[in-house]
Amino acid sequence: MLEIKDLKASINKKAILKGLNLTIKPGELHAIMGPNGSGKSTLANILSGKEGYEISGELNFNGESIKEISVEKRAQKGIFLAFQYPLEIPGVNTNNFLKTSLNSVRKARGEKELDTLSFLKLIKKTSYELGIDEGILSRQLNVGFSGGEKKKNEILQMKILNPKLSILDETDSGLDIDAIKIVAKGVNTLRNDKKSFLIITHYQRLLDYIKPDFVHVLSHGKIVKTGCSELAQELEKTGYKKIN
């Protein structure tokens, strides 16, 4: 599914990722942990195609290099990023945004666009399944949403867009227990042997609900340790000091 080889990235001449290797197979769920500023969000941004980085190395998605592919094309190919800080877009209705987004993705996949009625049915069903209050859907996109509401909205979008690779950048940070369960539910209900996940988190807690196949530690722009879910528990106790 995803293959990253010797990825180096810098911004304004500042090196952030310094030779990162990672392979995620279909059906696998990988967690990435690591100290603040180690480059986790940078990795997520680069995978999604964000501009502004100087990049070398290989980046393959489903056997195809995506290095030269635009953000929207990658999204249409099935890469989804739940943002660490979801953006507010004033004046844009959340429902409407989601519908436009879903239809762009569907169009790119050669599927029929959904009319308003079928879309509303789908979103009603999905938010009910996840236990997300529909109230946010009629509001302006992320404007005035609480931190938790923003994150739930990201998960709802992930569910609706049904991506092949979902990247969650600290979606669990700042969430109460119930909200964390919603995030976990979003992931677990999507999870199957064809879909892959890259979950960036600082806390073991989320991983209690979604069992990762691998846990990686990212430090100073490199993966310095890889293990299975026990590694996360260990880190929770000892911190990152021992690893460095």
């Binding site: 964000k50 635009s70 953000v71 929207e72 999204a75 953006l87 877009i89 945004f97 762009s104």
Partner: peptide, 9 residues
């Protein structure tokens, strides 16, 4: 960027 990430050109 956020919109692009959701598939909008």
């Amino acid at each position: 960027y956020y919109c692009n990430q959701r598939g909008l050109n």
